[in-house]
Design a protein around this nucleic acid. Structure first.
Lengths: 240, 240
DNA sequence: TCTAGACTTCGGCAATAGCCGAAATTATTA
DNA sequence: TAATAATTTCGGCTATTGCCGAAGTCTAGA
């Protein structure tokens, strides 16, 4: 069994488990279908059913789908994604080794359909750039939104290593930030650096954080959006 | 959300996912119920159904149970185990951080209902003792059977650390062993040592492995059983 | 504004699931 | 060996699911 197969099986099991345990399995089915960005008609076609069948499930008409329905649903998501290059599967692969999504450390992540520059990304997010203006033409391929408090509590240094290694070429956003220095210090000790760092959850960024940003030649942004949920929504809009 | 809750949720999702994805969900339900060592009558009573209902599911009379059935089943397993001290949940907790069971690194594990000495464990397994006879009175609380080839391929040194840290006071068995030196070298570099090491998969153990065993003061056993599956079965008999 | 695409709603029907309870079988324990 | 406990089998009944297909709604794009 290859590692790739193991990862696909683990992702399948993760998805199937979430659906099976959900109080609203239909809603959870929709969440995952939307994460895979597969239209109902495409999924229905793949499963040899009418699109209304998918809609009936997702809308909750059937309160308790059978296990065979779940299995066919999940396998279809993975098969279709693989036929299209495995984009979503690979996004999850990057982070599953240290179970970041499970532990609510990574609140949201996504790969852009086309890369954009750090400057363009900040502009679309309405993000204030504090440092590293001269590096804003770097390309960014995706983002991970990290809850710094959970990360510090629950990850050892090897976990941080994997977190940062997994997100090379992706913007790292940190929420729940106090001064900004903790994530910058953590990143400084890593070999791999993200192309862009964005902080969220504070009005004031420590000048040490700014210094580290300049020292590492990583642009540093700040979002003062009030709510983490709002930030998650806006980020997810950028990848849809 | 506490870490403990996270672990329980992850275990629930793991179990539910396995059942939902299985070609024979009833069999998988039985496998997990037996891992939790819960009789059908106890589970039925907890779920307010007749024992024949559980038997019907597990025997495959219903080919495709609904998600609500799976959810109730899984939650009942966890609830009953918690009412009895969380023995099975804690056995899984020890190993989930590095996803060893997922990756087929740990092929089997179990906690004894009562601790036994290293000597007694070896005797019940029909295991030849190569070294460390004077340490055989140490108590052993459980076992983990590790596929050394998978472990070496897929674990970094931090993974080994967690593997060995998690199994303190449990016998470590290694299968797929060639000479025996690799696991001994790996263990030598760890702070925590198991009370007993047993090798499987070779007829001859390298004398360096024996030296390391004596140096670390860990009894070393050897099982020449032909089949890994047979070993798994016999180990599982010891914890039932 | 119109068209196309995506999704929803819902009636209807066949198939299957959920469960009871009785009787039988198998396994365990005293 | 006998009693007890655990599990299985199966008929039967009600409830729900799986799915079709038609018609409708909403959104996006030309």
């Amino acid at each position: 069994m290859s590692l790739q197969t193991t990862i696909r099986e683990r992702l399948a099991r993760r998805i199937a488990g979430e659906i099976a345990l959900s109080d609203h399995p239909g809603q959870t089915m929709r969440v995952w279908r939307e994460r895979f960005r597969i239209p109902q008609v495409v999924l229905a076609d793949h499963l040899n059913v009418s699109p209304s069948v998918i809609s009936d499930y997702e809308s909750g008409r059937r309160k308790s789908p059978s296990t065979s329905t779940i299995r066919r649903f999940v396998m279809a998501l993975l098969d279709i994604d693989e036929q299209e290059g495995g984009q979503v599967i690979s996004a999850f692969v990057r982070l599953m080794d240290v179970n970041l999504v499970d532990m609510n450390i990574v609140l949201s992540m996504g790969e852009f359909t086309a890369p954009m520059t750090a400057g363009e990304f900040c502009e679309r997010l309405g993000c204030e750039i504090l440092a590293g203006h001269e590096y804003l033409d770097r390309e960014v391929y995706g983002y991970s939104l990290v809850d710094i408090e959970s990360a510090v509590k629950e990850l050892g240094s090897d976990g941080f290593l994997k977190l940062f290694g997994a997100t090379t070429e992706w913007c790292l956003l940190f929420t729940g930030v106090a001064t900004g220095r903790a994530p910058m210090i953590a990143i400084r000790s890593q070999e791999f650096k993200p192309p862009l760092i964005i902080l969220h959850g504070t009005e004031h960024v420590d000048h040490l954080a700014l210094d580290l940003s300049m020292q590492m030649r990583i642009p540093l942004g700040l979002i003062k959006t009030d709510s983490t949920d709002t930030l998650v929504s806006r980020l997810e809009e950028l990848v849809s």
